[in-house]
Measured scan of single mutants.
Amino acid sequence: MPSETPQAEVGPTGCPHRSGPHSAKGSLEKGSPEDKEAKEPLWIRPDAPSRCTWQLGRPASESPHHHTAPAKSPKILPDILKKIGDTPMVRINKIGKKFGLKCELLAKCEFFNAGGSVKDRISLRMIEDAERDGTLKPGDTIIEPTSGNTGIGLALAAAVRGYRCIIVMPEKMSSEKVDVLRALGAEIVRTPTNARFDSPESHVGVAWRLKNEIPNSHILDQYRNASNPLAHYDTTADEILQQCDGKLDMLVASVGTGGTITGIARKLKEKCPGCRIIGVDPEGSILAEPEELNQTEQTTYEVEGIGYDFIPTVLDRTVVDKWFKSNDEEAFTFARMLIAQEGLLCGGSAGSTVAVAVKAAQELQEGQRCVVILPDSVRNYMTKFLSDRWMLQKGFLKEEDLTEKKPWWWHLRVQELGLSAPLTVLPTITCGHTIEILREKGFDQAPVVDEAGVILGMVTLGNMLSSLLAGKVQPSDQVGKVIYKQFKQIRLTDTLGRLSHILEMDHFALVV
């Protein structure tokens, strides 16, 4: 994948999101292997301009796509893939009243899908469409860049269908997702969380590099694949309309690839034109409109599966009536509230959605109805927002919020430890010299600072030695090549209790 991002070429006709291997024109390309080798690009942008032909009021008969309808489940399912879809609609009884809503608040519980998330729908649909058009064949390999849930859905379907599955996901995604993927037989590649989507090191860039190296491999490409919004247009939206008897006044959905909100909203605009569509985008993402909503100094966020630093091709923002931004604290607070007060075992993005819903639905009156999409299960986040310690460490809970008995030293300040200034190293000294210094002084790690004293990161003896043994660096290389740029900081005025929580999850903390 090139470091400079080429513009994806656009073909003359058809839909841009065809499933299957992508040609340089962004659509299915038939021909000899030699032709494909000559024409197939190194990668295709996940934010390529959409060429979708959908228009409100256009006859369904003019759609270029294969459409399906929700099917009634048999008493005995032939395999677990038949437990994807037909998820329950559940009334939220307490939270709406707590925040003064007059309307009825309903939750579409997508964590009841077989793999635990709304992404099971698009995973199965992308595979079925690729099999139907002859792209996927027995023994082929599926590769997908994902925040985890699409990966789980694909790995689940691949396990049943017999495909090899490789999932490329950023490091910030939970260990629970990784464990589930491994249990399903998927191979996992992790990428830096802070890598831009168009960087060769991003999950998108690495996935395309693997595709170019592995024979008979395919990126189904949830960011561009029409099967993504079509899955929701054909099934999720129809289920909502049936469950609500066609009567709903507002739908609120958090947005990642945009397939969920695009597919549902398009069908609702056709069948229930008075329904307002509300999009939820986390602070630090750029999906919301108008652009002024996205202006923030924050560039990272903890909530998973929603928000991006690019506009995915499948996201149709014209069908969203209003956007709201959400933050991590309210997302996790509301997710825990949904679990504790409503018994809905949902993930953090569901918290984002409901946090926005109780604001947006203030305009609705008694007798009206708001539906929220709860995308995934708490299963993926047992060591994250479900953990009091994690919430404390991230600053989303305060010590006084917890009532468990603490040891005698818990409320003492870090400054009472009488710490001395640490050994520091410059980023320009060599790895070999740094190892000598650390061994001589008896230290395992040291902060790396520039000549102005600005902290650049941390270097550890173990990481340097393993990097040297693996051949990633040489003793003569500058130590700046092996620094940890993500590390926890703590102030002298913070409590030892807070430091204790940090050290339970990290090997060190830097006192500043």
Rank of each mutant, 00 (worst) to 15 (best):
S3G: 12
T5A: 02
P6K: 11
Q7C: 15
Q7P: 10
E9Y: 02
P12A: 02
H17M: 05
H17R: 08
R18Y: 14
S19L: 05
H22K: 02
K30D: 14
G31W: 13
E34I: 02
D35N: 13
D35A: 12
K36Y: 09
E37L: 14
A38D: 10
K39R: 14
K39N: 12
K39S: 04
E40V: 06
R45M: 08
R45G: 10
R45L: 14
P46C: 07
S50R: 06
W54L: 07
Q55L: 06
R58K: 12
A60Y: 11
H65V: 05
T68C: 10
T68V: 11
T68Y: 06
A71R: 15
L77A: 04
L77W: 05
L77S: 04
P78I: 05
K82F: 10
G85M: 05
G85H: 10
V90F: 02
I92C: 08
K97L: 11
K97T: 06
F99I: 12
L101G: 02
E104R: 05
L105S: 02
L106H: 15
E110S: 07
N113D: 06
N113S: 12
S117D: 02
I122W: 02
I122R: 02
A130R: 08
T135S: 02
L136Y: 07
K137S: 05
I142P: 07
E144W: 02
G148D: 07
I152D: 04
I152N: 04
G153L: 05
A155D: 02
A155C: 10
R161T: 02
R164L: 08
R164Y: 13
C165P: 02
M169F: 02
E171L: 02
K172D: 04
M173Y: 09
M173L: 15
M173W: 02
E176G: 07
E176A: 04
E176L: 08
K177G: 02
V178T: 02
D179R: 02
A183S: 12
L184H: 06
T191R: 06
P192C: 09
P192L: 02
A195F: 02
R196C: 08
P200E: 07
S202A: 08
S202C: 04
H203K: 07
V206D: 04
V206A: 08
W208R: 08
R209E: 10
L210F: 08
L210C: 09
N212W: 09
E213K: 11
P215N: 02
L220A: 07
D221H: 06
D221W: 06
Y223F: 08
Y223D: 02
N225C: 05
S227Y: 15
N228M: 02
L230A: 02
A231T: 15
A231H: 13
A231Y: 06
A231V: 09
H232P: 02
H232K: 10
Y233I: 02
D234N: 10
D234F: 07
T235V: 06
T236N: 13
A237W: 04
A237M: 07
A237F: 02
E239G: 14
I240S: 02
K247H: 15
L248W: 02
M250V: 05
V252I: 15
A253V: 09
A253R: 02
A253T: 13
G258V: 02
I261G: 05
I264V: 11
R266F: 06
L268T: 13
L268H: 06
K269G: 08
E270M: 07
P273S: 10
P273K: 12
P273G: 09
